[in-house]
Nucleic acid binder design. Structure first.
Lengths: 340, 340
DNA sequence: TTGTAAGCGTTATCAT
DNA sequence: ATGATAACGCTTACAA
């Protein structure tokens, strides 16, 4: 147990200022209901004593903590990091603070984190994706906590999600390649395990191909996680035997960077011999010798809108906000017409 | 104001289980002091009622929140993100949660964030660097909160910092280049404004050069922030007029990637015509066609050790831990002997 | 406009 | 081993 150093409290301020505790409290939270004179006197005492209100006590009394909980799969992906930063920035404008946790793509861990966050009394919860541990939604419901699923948009669950429509995005991207004449595709996919967004993107590709009766050969399909080196390996595996696909779709930014770097190392001409496209837009993709065609989602925008949506929910205000974020195809040099 | 839905509380559990509130509390926090029978009965009631303890109330009673506050300049730099993730992971093992804020390299904002964190009752605080707003240390001291400065190591402030010795790291790196015969240096520096680590690194370079009476020509010194594109521009600016330096030191990973990509675009042979080195090690640096020599700091390790140090401080345990993190020079193809 | 006093949901100190 | 009960520091009816 820590020392018993009685700290400065509201009562001390009240005593020194010669007013009641209620007045000090009001002076802090509803200044307009306190006479100017007292307000000034109290302010100076607060300053002089260096009093910092005790959040837990306030939380206990108001039943609100001013704290928002977020569980992200990882913080090291640039898009999540940007979203978190924007989320944090926007929330702090409204006086909220971010309580951050990390699930490491593990649903059980996500559940535990959510539980902990609720215990900490968060006023709302932010998650990524719509696929969660079966008990998560029950937990959130039971405690009656506003929540938002990010990086997904699903018309059927409107109002609870903010992000791009992953399926639609890759449906569009695939059709763009089909229009360029491509008929043979390779996929360097991000594993869809515990990742409904990756799954949705894969579905988008498959839907688009199915409409043209194009099938993907098993040997042209490779799955991995994340990382330039992994992208290289998977890309190489797809090209193990000929004939090669004329277009390769990559599941995320880093996989696509790896694929393009490997293609260069192998002496493949991109896009003349082969088109390579990615998902997500990180700076590197436009700076490489062969800039990479990709889908750009403004992650900061996801974060910002999530923040606004949350605040609206917490404060029971109307949601005047478009919850579907654009997923724009950015055409760069790595894609072109299919080789004749 | 939110609805008044009286929630399930400790008293409800006590009532249903037919014991006192004190016993329930004990059963939760010191199970060994409660008879097996009651413990089981209480556990089942807790489960059945779906009771989640109220953190704020607990915090009010114990004067501890189980929450650690951290203020980082940004979350989008890979090294910070990794450190935060490791920090979070390690802290959660000991039952702590991370309250995260972002200063955006703005000291005043950092101060505000620290203040807010203290108000939220954090048990300890994590900052980056040792240069803070003048009032920060007073605030922390006054509230008697354990704190750690990360990504710095300074023997003079031992026990309050965890990280690499930035000055020493670049002193070593510079000497490595000097030993390769380089005498004319260019610097693509990270601006040192509000960034004592960048300053320390710059000092390391200058100290090493000064020992050999080497001066840097003003036109060979460029300063920027972060980003591949910025690295390109600054690199190009340094090469505006001849003679060129034979070695270019870059202030961070992205600046060095930009420099190397630009050197390739300009047809400069690296390392034959020029050596280029960076600081920090991100995956891309080893995957580029010309892998980049750099200084590797294990940011996860910084995060992990910070967590352990904090927990030790909070719980008044001895610190059995090396607080200086290695900064290892990783030699790759981008550096070599100076051109004759 | 200001003061009084009853909570808010736990923990911890006493007794028993 | 268990129970009563006083904190913990603030907010907020309700009274004045």
């Amino acid at each position: 147990m820590p020392k018993a150093a009685r700290n400065i409290g509201l009562r001390d301020v009240a005593r020194v200022a010669g007013v009641s505790t209620a007045t000090v409290s009001r002076a802090m939270n509803n200044p307009e209901t306190v006479s100017e004179e007292l307000r000034a006197r109290i302010a100076s005492v607060v300053d002089h004593l260096g009093w910092v209100p005790h959040g837990a006590a306030r939380a206990l009394a108001t039943r609100r903590t001013g704290t928002i909980g977020a569980v992200f799969p990882t913080l090291t992906h640039g898009d999540f990091a940007r979203a978190i930063q924007a989320l944090q920035h926007e929330l702090s404008k409204s006086g909220y603070t971010l309580l951050l946790a990390c699930s490491e793509y593990n649903p059980k861990q996500e559940y535990e984190q959510v539980r902990k966050l609720i215990e900490r009394g968060v006023d709302a919860i932010v998650l990524v994706g719509e696929a969660h541990h079966p008990d998560v939604s029950g937990l959130i419901q039971k405690n009656n906590i506003p929540h938002v699923n990010t990086f997904v948009y699903n018309p059927e669950t409107h109002g609870t999600c903010v992000g791009p429509d992953n399926r639609k995005a890759l449906y569009k991207l695939t059709n763009y390649l089909i229009e360029l004449g491509h008929r043979s595709f390779g996929i360097v996919a991000q594993t869809a395990e515990n990742n409904d967004r990756a799954q949705a993107r894969l579905d988008g590709v498959r839907d688009a191909l199915a409409e043209k009766s194009i099938a993907i050969q098993p040997r042209h399909f490779a799955q991995g996680h994340w990382g330039i080196n992994e992208g290289r390996q998977l890309f190489r595996r797809i090209l193990e035997s000929k004939p090669w696909p004329t277009a390769v779709l990559c599941g995320n930014a880093y996989l696509s960077v790896g694929a393009v770097l490997e293609s260069q190392a192998m002496g493949i001409k991109v896009p003349e011999d082969m088109s390579i496209v990615g998902y997500d837009d990180i700076e590197m993709m436009s700076e490489l010798p062969v800039p990479i065609t990709t889908v750009r989602v403004l992650s900061d925008e996801v974060g910002r809108r999530t923040a606004r949506l949350l605040v609206a929910k917490i404060e029971n205000k109307p949601i005047g906000l478009d919850l579907e974020c654009d997923a724009e195809i950015v055409v760069r040099k790595s894609s072109g017409p299919a080789k004749a």
